[in-house]
């Protein structure tokens, strides 16, 4: 904790601001009453209703599949793009490429969604593919906007990595492709994992772009949530939120503990090495 009372106050205010809504959702998810202002009794009623909502469950399943597939493709494309930007120096068209990679990070989603839909419509007119809108078009759209995030994560890992490691491998006789798989890939693996998780989360969460490019038969979880929330409060959503927050919190805390342990072990090793052990 910082010493200055002002900073403490600022930090606590900021964190309270971030967490009060989330904590409130969790508390309300156990409220038997529909209203947010009346606490009747503790119950798992909304979790039960959530589990019986087939429409919501099938949308969730679609979202998970879409997120899994798009995150996996986004990781491949994003890693290649990160390699290009971090290691390929000044290739032809670099400015355009880096522009296209970083623009989706801030591009308003309505623009991305609209433009991708118009692309798919035009492609269907000209090529006859993709036929209609559905899971395929959602996946293509999600790969496009999540790969930028993967690229940024991978690129910043590569930039901070000593490029002479790759040169050393090459100097010792490994061909470029082998250098990539034996040296580069293992060393950027943590960035690739966090890039995948980021892409997965973003895809799972996306509403706007999905709304543009989805078809009648493919409704994702955010679309269901949005349409029920638009009509006002829906306690089922509280239960869903609690589940999401729990999963994410467990994941992040585990990752945090794992990192802290790694760091501790590394520090111990370094100390040992300094003492000549």
């Amino acid at each position: 904790m910082p010493k200055s009372w002002f900073l403490r106050f600022g930090l606590i205010t900021g964190l309270l601001f971030l967490y009060i809504p989330i904590i409130l959702l969790i508390v309300l998810s156990f409220n038997d009453n529909r209203s947010v202002s009346v606490w009747s009794e503790f119950s798992f009623r909304w979790y039960g209703e959530l589990m019986r909502d087939d429409q919501l469950l099938s949308a969730a399943w679609l979202s998970v599949r879409v997120a899994f597939i798009s995150a996996s493709f986004a990781v491949v494309l994003g890693t290649l793009a990160g390699m290009m930007l971090a290691r390929f120096g000044a290739f032809k068209g670099r400015a355009l490429f880096s522009g296209m990679v970083s623009a989706p990070l801030v591009m308003p989603e309505v623009i991305m969604g609209l433009s991708l839909l118009l692309l798919f419509v035009s492609m269907e007119q000209v090529l006859g593919w993709p036929e209609g809108r559905g899971m395929l078009t959602i996946i293509l759209a999600h790969i496009t906007f999540t790969m930028s995030f993967v690229t940024v994560v991978v690129q910043s890992r590569l930039v901070s990595m000593d490029a002479s490691l790759e040169e050393a491998a090459m100097d010792l006789g490994a061909r470029p492709a082998k250098v990539f798989f034996v040296i580069t890939l293992p060393l950027i693996a943590p960035a690739i994992v966090s890039g995948w998780l980021l892409a997965f989360t973003l895809s799972l969460d996306d509403l706007v772009i999905t709304s543009f490019v989805s078809g009648p038969g493919s409704t994702t979880l955010p679309q269901i949530v949005f349409s029920s929330v638009r009509l006002g409060l829906s306690p089922k959503v509280n239960a869903l939120a609690t589940i999401v927050v729990t999963i994410v919190a467990i994941g992040i805390i585990c990752a945090g503990i794992y990192n802290a342990r790694q760091e501790k072990a590394r520090q111990r090793d370094e100390q040992m090495a300094q003492q000549g052990g």
């Binding site: 000593d162 002479s164 490691l165 040169e167 050393a168 491998a169 090459m170 100097d171 010792l172 006789g173 490994a174 061909r175 040296i183 293992p186 060393l187």
Partner: peptide, 27 residues
Amino acid sequence: PYERPVNMMFQSYALFPHMSVEANIAF
């Protein structure tokens, strides 16, 4: 470089951090 009869010792040493000392030398 991977076909030259030349080897280099790097300023940063460039030891592969994910490999043991033996694996580094055997690389």
